[in-house]
Structures are given as C-alpha cells and as structure tokens.
Simulated assay, not measured.
Amino acid sequence: MNQITVYTTNTCPYCVMMKNFLKEKGLPFKEVNVQQDPIAANRLVKTTGQMGVPQTEINGQWVIGFDPERVLQLVK
C-alpha cells in the first residue's frame, strides 16, 4: 500500500492536475492544504526547502511540482 500525501493550496492548477492524475491511476492519497494549515506549511518548507506546490510525498520520497513520471517511479 502506497503512502501518498499531496500538499496543495486553493489556487494551484498543478495541484488539481496532480490529484486528478492520482485518481486516474487509482492511487489513494491524503491532501493537506497548506493555505489552511500553516503548521503543515512550515513543516513542508523545513522538510523540502521548497515553498511551491504541489509537493507530493510518496512512501517517504518527494515529488516537487506536477511530475507524473516521477510519481510512477515511486509507487509500488
């Protein structure tokens, strides 16, 4: 079972693309909206050094931005 978390904001088109891609592939994920959760936003920047979204954690590895090929490399 894959552990997938997508970090998003309300206004990010690539976040929607990432979520739609995961849904199309039948990959369940948890969404964390960093606009509504500043603690998660701070933790994200500390962890990855990146401000932008989407950032997707897959089984402990990070995908920055909308990168379907990288997602497919990381899922089991």
Rank of each mutant, 00 (worst) to 15 (best):
R70F: 02
R70V: 11
M17A: 15
N2P: 01
Q73C: 01
G26L: 08
F29D: 10
P38G: 11
T48K: 08
L22H: 07
M18A: 15
N2V: 10
E31H: 00
R70D: 10
E57I: 11
G49Q: 10
F66L: 03
Q36E: 13
D37W: 01
G65Q: 07
E69R: 01
V53I: 13
N2L: 10
T47S: 12
L72G: 08
L22I: 01
G60S: 09
L22G: 02
Q61D: 13
Q73H: 11
E31G: 00
C15Y: 08
N42V: 02
R70E: 15
K46I: 06
T48E: 03
G26Q: 04
A40I: 09
G26H: 05
K76V: 14
K46L: 09
P38C: 12
N20P: 00
L74Y: 05
V45S: 07
D37R: 02
P38M: 07
V32F: 02
V71A: 02
G52N: 14
T47P: 00
V16I: 15
Q50V: 15
Q55S: 02
M51S: 12
L44S: 03
P13R: 04
M17I: 11
A41I: 01
V16R: 13
Y14T: 08
L22N: 06
K46P: 00
E69I: 00
M1G: 13
M51I: 09
K76R: 13
F29G: 06
E24K: 15
R70I: 07
T8Q: 07
K46R: 14
I39N: 08
Q50E: 13
K19A: 00
V6C: 06
N42M: 14
L27V: 03
L22D: 04
I4T: 11
F66Q: 01
V71G: 02
N10K: 15
G26A: 09
R43I: 08
Y7P: 02
F66A: 04
G49D: 11
M51G: 03
N59L: 12
K46F: 08
T5Y: 03
M17P: 00
E57N: 10
V45F: 14
V71M: 11
L74N: 09
V6E: 03
K46G: 00
L27D: 03
A40H: 15
V63H: 05
P13L: 09
F66W: 01
Q35G: 12
L22R: 04
R43E: 11
P68I: 15
A41K: 15
G60D: 12
V32T: 04
G52D: 13
V53W: 02
I39V: 14
P54Y: 08
M17K: 15
V71N: 04
N59H: 04
V53A: 04
Q36G: 06
Q3F: 11
K76H: 15
V63M: 01
C15R: 12
G60P: 05
T9K: 06
F21H: 12
T11M: 13
P38A: 13
G26E: 05
K25R: 14
